[in-house]
Design a protein around this nucleic acid. Structure first.
Lengths: 192, 192
DNA sequence: ATCATTTTGAAACAATCAATACAGAATTAT
DNA sequence: ATAATTCTGTATTGATTGTTTCAAAATGAT
């Protein structure tokens, strides 16, 4: 009957996500977005909604990427402790690469503060990582790789929390060694 | 020779700080500021400068408050370990009180990202806390309250990092027990 | 090819943004 | 009291904000 949408919606959201990621929600203008997405504002409003809706879609997109990453790690055979260690190593690499900090963290401290929808998405994202870590810790305990005296729930929370601070540390001090040392210390605490 | 400024500059900065703290840099408008500060925009620009300058003054004000807090804690006699424990307990109380998250963290992940001046202020703030913690850990080691096998520098970094994550955790999950457990675990790790 | 439908692009919308101009009120020193 | 100076309030600046309008272009079904 009629014309189809010309642009790739997922690609457009990806681009928008990158802009929001870099500049934050309030720091991003509609013109920043349409320029990066290479679509007109009328097309944007027609297909993706207003700024807030688009932002929600972007944060969702971001957490879906993270979810897929965790799912890929779950499939990976090998000891649970190694899965966790690799997970930590990869995170350290991302942090000290000097790229933009984790979007979930930035969003948590900016836009999520007064938007429950965003909070819910980030909470679900955090919960998913929590389960991933908790399960692997529990399995590592069964395998005797981590002391059974520890509480996997507590350790999982601790895991996620510590992480966030590493981003802030590198943001301010730009010192890779600090991050590496903290990661090594964390693994040591975990395994002893 | 001439008239004096009518409003209390420190009080005005305090008010501005509260607004920035709540809404973030980009989320705060000049109207928000002048309304809260109860001064006219012309007075603002005359005495405090533009939005960016005012923000710098506010972040400085915030870190000065924290500095004074730490200095008060330093004067407090008692064991170094107790000083650290009290410091942690107080932080936990603030976090689970449900008030706004720490302004330094929010700013680090929003405005500091592309403003070196802000980064420098926050770095100095972080360094001051670092010294406070490091010194107390070192003293606690001498007193035999903390194992001498640990590295006070590393522990101090770890201290600060963990902290940040607690804020994010409570922001998303609103679960005081999680924070309390993590704090208890942290102290346990520190002292054993 | 025609028609119905939808997307697109350019332009413009009112509202708000940060920032300023300027006149008059207020203050101090003389 | 006068003069010199500075602060304050009103009003407004041009720019930018998010959003919408609308005609023209593009598409698919008949």
């Amino acid at each position: 009957m009629a014309r189809n949408v010309e642009f790739d919606e997922t690609a457009a959201i990806q681009k928008a996500m990158e802009v929001f990621w870099e500049k934050g929600y309030h720091g991003t203008s509609l013109r920043d977005l349409t320029e990066a997405m290479k679509i007109n504002s009328s097309s944007l409003y027609n297909t993706l909604g207003d700024k807030q809706e688009l932002f929600v879609k972007c944060v969702n997109h971001y957490t879906e990427i993270r979810k897929k990453d965790l799912q890929a790690r779950e499939k990976n055979s090998g000891s649970s402790l190694n899965t966790l260690k690799t997970y930590i190593d990869d995170a350290v690499s991302v942090i000290i690469s000097g790229e933009n900090s984790c979007m979930a963290i930035k969003t948590a401290f900016e836009a999520a503060v007064d938007d429950q929808r965003i909070k819910d998405i980030l909470k679900a994202d955090s919960d998913y990582a929590y389960q991933f870590i908790r399960n692997n810790i529990a399995k590592a305990m069964e395998a005797g790789e981590i002391s059974k005296e520890e509480d996997p729930e507590l350790l999982a929370d601790y895991f996620i929390s510590t992480w966030t601070g590493w981003h802030e540390s590198f943001l301010l001090h730009q010192n890779p060694l600090k991050i590496k040392k903290m990661a090594a210390y964390f693994v040591k605490q975990l395994t002893k």
